[in-house]
């Protein structure tokens, strides 16, 4: 907030120095300051009112809509939401909260594997060594196929297909493992493309600088290109991981894995209301929103370190 008052005197002094006909000093600055202040207040007022009106309208929709009472009963039933969250074995209710732990486990395991596999695929597509040609081909076919096939089909394919093969070690895994395998197969294709976009966004002059130091193609990639590429793709990567976090729920289609979504399905079919799904939805939001904020902070920190990182005393 600018300090007023003391400036008035200064303005007067300047006035005497000005040629006649010139706009009075501070006429722009003063006006700008005033209107900015006014505009600031007005903007704040307008945004407050519009927020209140908007939220009010949304609440009104839930309160006054013809079916509002039924929706509240089915989706926002506090008693049954609590039951769904905690679970109750005596009533055959699974805990959605406990199920979510399983989602988180699947998500974390899958994420680590995806980050690794996708990076390998992206790098394979980048290296120009002729010996690697078949792998490069394979990487291209793989990304094309698995980006094209819906995740749910991959989950069915592996969850029901792998056991049917009767291969020792592969066909006897749990649905938990099949679910993760499907997520990794499908998402690695997307994430590899994200990495690749990041790699291509690093300017060719960086490669020239690295190679001219005598770094091999692999070392240039590892020390110069990839670190920059990964920084660039953190936001889109996070986007994919929020999506992955949600998609762990699709593993419920294999049936035997009682993760959050499956628990909610069972609960809703027992209680005959959908409040358990609301619980699951809220729990998923509790995970994805902090994830988004966390990444925003990472990005901001990286930017400020690079741009405002001066003044470091050795």
């Amino acid at each position: 907030m600018p300090v007023r008052g003391s400036r008035e005197g200064a303005d007067l002094d300047e006035q005497t120095l000005l040629a006649p006909g010139a706009p009075p000093p501070g006429s722009f600055a003063g006006n700008g300051r005033g209107s900015h202040l006014l505009g600031g207040q007005r903007a704040a007022a307008v945004s407050t009112v519009s927020t209140v009106v908007f939220i009010g309208a949304v609440i009104a929709l839930f309160v006054f809509a013809p079916g509002a009472a039924a929706v509240r009963h089915t989706f926002f039933n506090p008693q049954q939401m609590k039951q769904a969250f905690l679970g109750d074995p005596s009533k055959g209710l699974y805990s959605v909260g406990k199920g979510l732990i399983l989602n988180i486990e699947m998500f974390l395991i899958a994420e680590v594997l995806i980050l690794f596999c996708a990076l390998v695929i992206a790098v394979l597509r980048q290296l120009r060594n002729p010996v690697l040609f078949p792998f490069r081909m394979l990487a291209v076919v793989y990304t094309d196929v698995f980006r094209g096939v819906p995740l749910i089909i991959v989950i069915y394919g592996i969850g029901f297909g792998a056991p049917a093969l009767y291969i020792r070690g592969i066909s006897t895994q749990s649905d938990f493992v099949y679910g993760i395998a499907a997520l990794v197969l499908s998402y690695s294709a997307y994430v590899a493309e994200v990495y690749r976009a990041g790699i291509n966004s690093v300017h060719q002059s960086q490669v020239a600088a690295a190679r001219s130091l005598g770094l091999s193609q692999w070392k240039s990639l590892r020390f110069v290109v990839l670190p920059q590429a990964v920084r660039t793709v953190i936001p889109p990567l996070l986007n994919d991981f929020i999506s992955l976090q949600k998609d762990t729920a699709l593993v419920s289609t294999l049936g035997a894995v009682i993760e959050a979504n499956r628990a909610a399905q069972i609960d809703s079919s027992t209680l005959f209301v959908y409040s358990s799904y609301t619980v699951a939805a809220l729990l998923f939001l509790c995970l994805t929103i902090p994830l988004a904020r966390f990444t925003d902070r990472l990005i901001a920190r990286d930017v400020s370190r690079r741009l405002a990182g001066s003044g470091t005393v050795r």
Partner: peptide
């Protein structure tokens, strides 16, 4: 070789820019 557009590695400190070649090559 020194380039027109410097081509320093933006993700590394000045010192790391300089030591990359000696350490890795």
């Amino acid at each position: 070789i020194v380039f027109q557009a410097f081509n320093l590695f933006p993700h590394m400190t000045v010192l790391r820019n300089i030591t990359l070649g000696p350490t890795r090559v």
